[in-house]
């Protein structure tokens, strides 16, 4: 039976195998798959039998590439690729006799171990540190081309593979092969998504993703706006993010919005809705309020701020103030990448 990677390659020749393998294990974990499913995945993705030795649970199993469970191998060849938890208790071994033929083995073993550790409730024991290191190298603008190419190879990518980088606060860079996949990987988290570029230019996509992240909002009443921002959509605002000096004095419009928002909790969501919709009626629909309420709020907001927030010029002024306010907030709370 043809192994799964060959099947995937036939269906998806331009897909990055490493990202697909990672997606496979992530999906298994998300669906609460059991340990045997994970071992089977390791075998199917690598095309060779996979062994699990769990010394904490006294469990061992062996599954061949076609998914069949077999008696455990009597002896484990020390040259076979493997991944082991930090405490050495859980181990996954792929029966590859010529390991140099398949550089995905290390990744598959690490990911399988992480999924198994998750399934048995010990995820911290199996963090795939090396992979994060490779990811960080790929997006590091200061890495030499040689280092970056090695890291790319480790991830099963070529310098020409098209990727985009997702920035999430407090998380490692996430690579995706298309914007749709990037959105999916971001999930419900606040995220900036860089442009799709050849992997060789991933540092630029990463930089833009961080800049886009500064333009995101919580999406709540207190912090209205988009939770996910695409660098592709942000235009000149990215330039603003990258050139606004941290700690710089903010314009009066921003200070005014912040000051008045403290005593008028309806202000920010009203400004966001009015400035991003064609009419007061549309803004009311977006807010789920009656248009006369929004009409009244918009008049009050215009009085408070000192500009008409409903005409075209006023909308631009509001949008710019909100954007600079977000950037300022982001600079206070987000450490810059690396």
């Amino acid at each position: 039976m043809r192994d799964l990677t060959a099947r995937i390659t036939a269906l998806a020749p331009e897909a990055a195998d490493a990202l697909k393998a990672i997606a496979y294990f992530d999906e298994l974990s998300q669906h609460g798959a059991g340990v045997r499913s994970v071992v089977r995945a390791a075998a199917a993705l690598s095309g060779v039998p996979a062994n699990l030795i769990d010394r904490t649970g006294g469990v061992s199993m062996r599954v061949t590439a076609d998914g069949t469970s077999m008696p455990v191998a009597e002896s484990v060849d020390p040259s076979w690729p493997r991944a082991v938890t930090e405490d050495g208790a859980v181990e996954i071994v792929l029966e590859r006799s010529a390991p140099n033929e398949a550089h995905l083995d290390a990744l598959v073993a690490e990911r399988a171990l992480l999924a198994i550790a998750t399934a048995i409730g010990r995820p911290d024991e199996a963090r795939p540190r090396d992979e994060n290191l490779a990811l960080r190298t790929v997006v590091d603008a200061k890495a030499t081309p040689k280092l970056r190419h090695q890291a790319l190879e480790r991830l099963g990518l070529t310098p020409e593979t098209e990727v985009c980088v997702v920035a999430v606060r407090g998380a490692a860079p996430v690579l995706a092969i298309a914007l749709a996949e990037a959105r999916e990987k971001a999930g419900s988290r606040r995220a900036g998504i860089g442009q799709v570029l050849p992997a060789d230019e991933a540092p630029l996509s990463w930089k833009r993703a961080w800049s886009a992240l500064a333009l995101t909002s919580e999406g709540t009443r207190a912090d209205p706006g988009d939770r996910i921002v695409l660098a592709d959509d942000a235009g000149a605002l990215l330039w603003l993010v990258e050139h606004l000096s941290p700690g710089a004095e903010l314009p009066d419009d921003v200070t005014s919005v912040t000051t008045h928002a403290a005593s008028a909790p309806w202000l920010l969501e009203t400004l966001e809705a009015i400035s991003t919709n064609d009419s007061v009626r549309d803004a009311a629909a977006a807010l789920g309020l009656h248009h006369s309420t929004v009409q009244e709020r918009s008049a009050r907001a215009s009085r408070l701020l000192g500009w008409d927030i409903t005409d075209q010029r006023g909308k631009h002024r509001t949008q710019l103030a909100l954007a600079i306010r977000r950037i300022g907030n982001a600079q206070r709370t987000n450490p810059a990448p690396q």
């Binding site: 799964l4 998806a12 697909k20 496979y24 669906h31 609460g32 798959a33 499913s37």
Partner: peptide, 11 residues
């Protein structure tokens, strides 16, 4: 099924 979902996700 979890295994089927994972395979589908990949392709």
């Amino acid at each position: 099924d979890p295994e089927l979902a994972a395979a589908l996700e990949v392709v």
